[in-house]
């Protein structure tokens, strides 16, 4: 980690995309073998995504200081679809607001590197393969004090679509003083 005296452009390390896809696939298969129930696997993938997301929020903000505070859900959707997904998965998504309530939006990924070679057999029809992305969105927005619900609406073989719904703004903590 060396830095020049000016603000250094962070180097983008590239890795083999197939290795990434295969690693994720191996993780899902291992979870299926250990837990044997698709619902349990979905819950675990959500948790793993959540832990990743909580840390990704700070990473994205530190690398992109020009991303200002978002004042409405539309801006948040834009940042996630055009910047965050691009930075971390290398893909963009488009935001769909049709048939949505005001606090909801849908992200439809143009392509999904996680499901590159994947076809889900009928016996695992209840598996939400890309659940980790939902978990990451949930974790990252929670780090930004917004409670949301991110649900995988459709996945491989169709386009991956995630519906995000805002629940509430989380209150900021105050440390307890001596008077309490």
């Amino acid at each position: 980690m060396s830095r020049s005296s000016k603000q250094a452009v962070p180097e983008v390390k590239t890795m083999n995309a197939e290795l990434f896809t295969l690693t994720y696939g191996a993780l899902v298969v291992d979870l299926l073998k250990d837990l044997e129930s698709e619902e349990e696997v979905n819950i675990q993938l959500q948790k793993i995504g959540y832990n990743i997301g909580v840390r990704l929020a700070d990473d994205l903000l530190s690398k992109n200081p020009h991303i200002g505070r978002c004042t409405d859900s539309h801006q948040i959707a834009e940042v996630i679809s055009k910047q965050a997904l691009k930075a971390y998965l290398g893909v963009t998504a488009h935001v769909s607001l049709s048939n949505m309530l005001p606090n909801e939006f849908s992200l439809i990924l143009d392509s999904n590197p996680l499901v590159e070679f994947v076809e889900i057999p009928p016996k695992y029809s209840k598996l939400c393969y890309s659940q980790i992305i939902c978990g990451a969105i949930h974790g990252a927005l929670e780090a930004l004090h917004l409670q949301v619900n991110a649900v995988l609406v459709s996945d491989v073989p169709d386009q991956t679509e995630i519906r995000v719904k805002f629940i509430r703004i989380l209150r900021e903590y105050m440390p307890t003083g001596d008077e309490d």
């Binding site: 980690m1 830095r3 603000q7 962070p10 700070d58 990473d59 530190s62 690398k63 200081p65």
Partner: peptide
């Protein structure tokens, strides 16, 4: 301060 933030993140 922004650089300290990136060091913290990394």
């Amino acid at each position: 301060l922004r650089e300290i933030y990136s060091i913290f993140v990394a």
